Simulated scan of single mutants.
Amino acid sequence: MRSLPTTHLLYLHGFRSSPGSTKAQLMARRIATTHPKVHWWCPQLPPSPREAIDLIMRGIACWPRDSMAVVGSSLGGFYATYVAGMTRCPAVLLNPAVHPARDLARHIGTQTQWHDREQHFYFRSEYIDELRGLEVGALPRPERCFAIVAKGDEVLDWREMSARYPDSRVKLLEKGDHALSDFERAHLDEVIAFLQPA
């Protein structure tokens, strides 16, 4: 993939999720335990896609492009695709959203956080256009992308996800679910190996 190991790792959570998500926490613990020199960042993303990307791109502005990487889950996978397109860094995409402008149009209104139902936010109609503005075409370095796609995903269409990254490595699961509930047991080691953390 590249000669330099990953020194800076960005994790982007999905819609209604947070840095407290199971996969984010599993990765954070693994990196802290086995690769403590790696700079880990998993920000709480605002509901506005434009604000989310602004936050992300400001946060990684000084990161070394030749030794950074990004992991994204669901809507975070859509954002991670944008980051990979802009920086050409390696990306791991976990059941990535492919058409969020279409899919999230039915979620306009008040939403709750998955991990804390007391936390509310309002998903505005203008966010749909913001999502459209973040769509990128084919990745400039598709070989630096690794997507894990579950046919059993109850939220997103596995055909669309796998077709979105035709020249990348795609691990297509015959079953599974949107959350990749077996992430720690079946996929975490493979993700870490792909990222080659320092």
Rank of each mutant, 00 (worst) to 15 (best):
I108V: 13
L10E: 00
T22A: 13
A105W: 00
W63Q: 06
P140K: 13
W63K: 07
A69E: 01
L12C: 07
P100I: 04
G20Y: 01
V83A: 11
F121E: 05
L26G: 06
T33E: 10
H178N: 11
S162A: 15
T87G: 08
C62G: 12
L12N: 05
V170G: 02
Y82T: 05
H13V: 09
F78Y: 14
R88N: 13
L180N: 05
T7E: 13
R159G: 05
P140C: 11
G176P: 04
Y127T: 11
H107F: 15
M86D: 01
E130A: 11
A163K: 07
S168L: 10
D157G: 08
D116L: 05
V155P: 02
A84Y: 00
S181K: 03
F15Y: 06
L172V: 11
A179Q: 09
A32Y: 00
G72Q: 05
E143C: 08
R50M: 11
A24M: 09
K151W: 00
I56G: 07
Q111K: 08
K151C: 13
P100F: 00
L45F: 06
Y122K: 09
R185I: 07
H178Y: 03
E143F: 01
F78P: 10
E174S: 14
C42H: 05
P197A: 14
V38Y: 03
G14R: 11
W40D: 04
R117M: 08
R29F: 03
R124H: 14
V136M: 14
E51C: 12
L188C: 10
F123W: 14
R106S: 14
H99E: 08
W114H: 13
M1A: 15
A80V: 04
E143I: 04
M86F: 00
Y11T: 02
A163W: 00
E184A: 15
R185A: 15
T112A: 15
R169I: 10
D182E: 10
P142A: 07
R132E: 11
H39E: 12
Y127E: 06
P96C: 10
V98R: 02
D157H: 02
D157W: 02
R159V: 14
R65V: 13
V83C: 07
D182T: 14
D177H: 04
Y165A: 09
P100G: 05
F15L: 07
G59M: 06
P36T: 08
T22D: 12
H107L: 14
I148D: 02
W114L: 15
S125N: 06
I192M: 13
R65K: 15
Q196R: 15
D153H: 04
D177S: 11
G76F: 03
F194I: 14
L94T: 09
V191A: 06
L156W: 02
P142E: 05
A193P: 00
C89D: 04
P5A: 15
R106T: 13
L180K: 04
M57Q: 13
E190V: 04
Y122M: 07
Y11C: 06
S168P: 04
D129Y: 00
P36N: 10
E160I: 04
G176Y: 02
L139H: 10
E190H: 11
R164L: 10
A198M: 04
A80G: 01
D116Q: 07
L12E: 03
R58E: 12
R50K: 15
W114Q: 12
E130H: 08
Q44F: 01
F194S: 15
P5W: 09
L93N: 05
L139D: 05
C89Y: 01
I31D: 02
Q25K: 14
L26Y: 02
W41F: 10
L188G: 08
E126H: 15
S21T: 09
